[in-house]
C-alpha cells in the first residue's frame, strides 16, 4: 500500500488535481462566508458557485485518473520556463516605466537590443540581427504607434 501511495505522490496530476480542488474549495468557502450580497432570482454567487463545483469535480476526476496511472508527464525545464515568464513580466513593466522616463523609441530600442544580446551566443559577431534588426524594428514601432495610431503613451525626456 505504502509503495503505491508513494508512487501516487510522484505523479504530476496528483498535484494538478489537488490544486483544482483547493481553488474550488476556497472559492466555495468565500461564497459561503465572504462578502457576497444575494441578488434577485438566482443571485450573483450562483454562476461562480457552479464554476467552483465544476472545478472541484474536474480535480477529483484528474486525481482518480492519476490513481489509475493516467497522469501527464512532469513538465520539462519548468524552472527555466517559469523564470523566463517572470523575467518577461519584469522586463515588460521595466520597459513601460522606462518609456515614461526616456521616451518610446529609446526604451524600446534598449529593450530589444538587450533581449537580442541575451538570446544570442556571441551577439557582437551577429550584429545585424542583434543591433540592426532591433533598431529598424524600433523605428517601425515608433512610426506605427506614435505617428500612425497616435497612442497617448507616457512622455519621456528623449523620444
Amino acid at each position: 500500500m505504502k509503495p503505491q501511495f508513494n508512487k501516487l505522490l510522484t505523479r504530476q496530476d496528483t498535484y494538478t488535481g489537488f490544486v483544482a480542488i483547493a481553488v474550488g474549495a476556497v472559492g466555495l468557502l468565500d461564497i459561503a462566508y465572504g462578502n457576497w450580497r444575494p441578488g434577485a432570482g438566482l443571485g450573483p454567487h450562483a454562476f461562480p458557485q457552479l464554476a467552483y463545483i465544476t472545478l472541484i469535480c474536474a480535480g477529483v476526476v484528474i486525481m482518480i485518473e492519476a490513481v489509475f496511472g493516467k497522469s501527464d508527464e512532469h513538465p520539462e525545464n519548468l524552472r527555466l520556463v517559469i523564470s523566463t515568464g517572470v523575467g518577461l513580466v519584469a522586463i515588460g513593466m521595466g520597459m513601460f516605466w522606462l518609456i515614461g522616463k526616456l521616451g518610446l523609441a529609446v526604451s524600446v530600442a534598449i529593450t530589444l537590443i538587450g533581449a537580442s544580446f541575451l538570446l544570442t551566443r556571441d551577439p557582437l559577431r551577429h550584429w545585424p540581427s542583434t543591433i540592426v534588426v532591433p533598431i529598424v524594428a524600433t523605428l517601425v514601432i515608433w512610426v506605427l504607434f506614435v505617428k500612425l495610431i497616435n497612442v497617448p503613451l507616457p512622455r519621456g525626456l528623449l523620444f
Binding site: 443571485g43 461562480p48 467552483y52 472545478l55 474536474a58 484528474i62
Partner: peptide
Amino acid sequence: GKVAKGVAMAALGILLAMIGRDPMGGSLRL
C-alpha cells in the same frame, strides 16, 4: 489532452469572466 482538464479550464475561464460587477444586480464579485 484529458477531458477533466478541459472541463477545469472551462470553469476557470468562467471564473475569470465573473471578475467585476454583476451585470444584473451590480454587486462586486471576485
